[in-house]
Computed example of a mutant assay.
Amino acid sequence: MADIYSKGSIIQPRQLRRLNGKRVVFMSGEEGKIAFPYIIIKRKKDYQPVNIMNRQVFKEIKQIRNGRVTLAERVNSSSPLYSTGQGLSKKKTQTSYWRKKDES
């Protein structure tokens, strides 16, 4: 599986779990927010969930943004979704083997 933190890697739908809470811009200009496994789109006064794992919905994604920074972008509708390598930092989770968990 490609690393979404590097520039030019292809993003797959299951990798969007790491991008929870980021903005999605569709080819039609609509915007939504990732709440894996859905994208929540605001249409008029309603919020409508759309499944990310649906191939047609995933192909409609044009950009994924974090504020002003573009995290991933698709050049046209037939090209894959490429990561830009910006705006994300790897979270290193450290496990301490010396500390004991709560023993209650």
Rank of each mutant, 00 (worst) to 15 (best):
G87F: 03
N66M: 10
Q15S: 05
L71E: 03
R74P: 02
R43P: 02
S9I: 02
G8Q: 04
Q63W: 09
G87E: 02
R99A: 09
P37Y: 01
F26D: 02
R68P: 05
S96W: 12
G32N: 05
E103N: 13
Y5K: 00
T95S: 12
E60D: 14
K45P: 01
G21R: 09
Y97P: 00
Y5G: 07
Q56H: 14
T84E: 00
Q12F: 12
V25G: 05
I10N: 06
S28Y: 02
K100N: 13
R18T: 06
Y47Q: 14
R65N: 11
K22S: 06
M27E: 14
Q48A: 07
K101W: 13
K44W: 04
R99Q: 13
V25P: 01
I61M: 05
N76S: 09
G32F: 07
M27Q: 12
D46T: 08
K7W: 00
E103H: 11
Q12V: 11
D102E: 08
N76M: 00
R17E: 13
T84I: 01
M53Q: 09
K101D: 15
Q56A: 15
M1H: 11
R99H: 13
G32P: 03
Y82H: 12
L16T: 08
K101M: 14
N20M: 12
K44H: 09
R65P: 02
I11H: 06
E73Q: 09
S77V: 11
S104A: 15
I11N: 03
L19H: 05
M53F: 11
R17G: 05
S83V: 01
S96F: 10
R65C: 14
R17W: 06
S79R: 07
Y82I: 10
G21F: 10
V50N: 10
E30A: 07
P37R: 07
G29Q: 03
K90N: 06
P13Y: 09
Y47W: 14
P37W: 05
A2W: 09
D102V: 10
F26H: 02
V25Q: 11
E31K: 15
R43K: 15
I61T: 06
W98P: 07
Y47C: 12
S9W: 00
W98K: 15
S89H: 10
F26S: 03
I61P: 05
N76H: 02
V50E: 14
G29I: 00
I11Q: 03
L81R: 02
Q63T: 08
P80D: 06
N54D: 15
R17T: 10
I10K: 11
A2V: 07
Q86R: 13
R65E: 12
P37C: 04
R43V: 08
K62D: 07
Q94G: 03
R55F: 04
P49N: 04
Q86N: 09
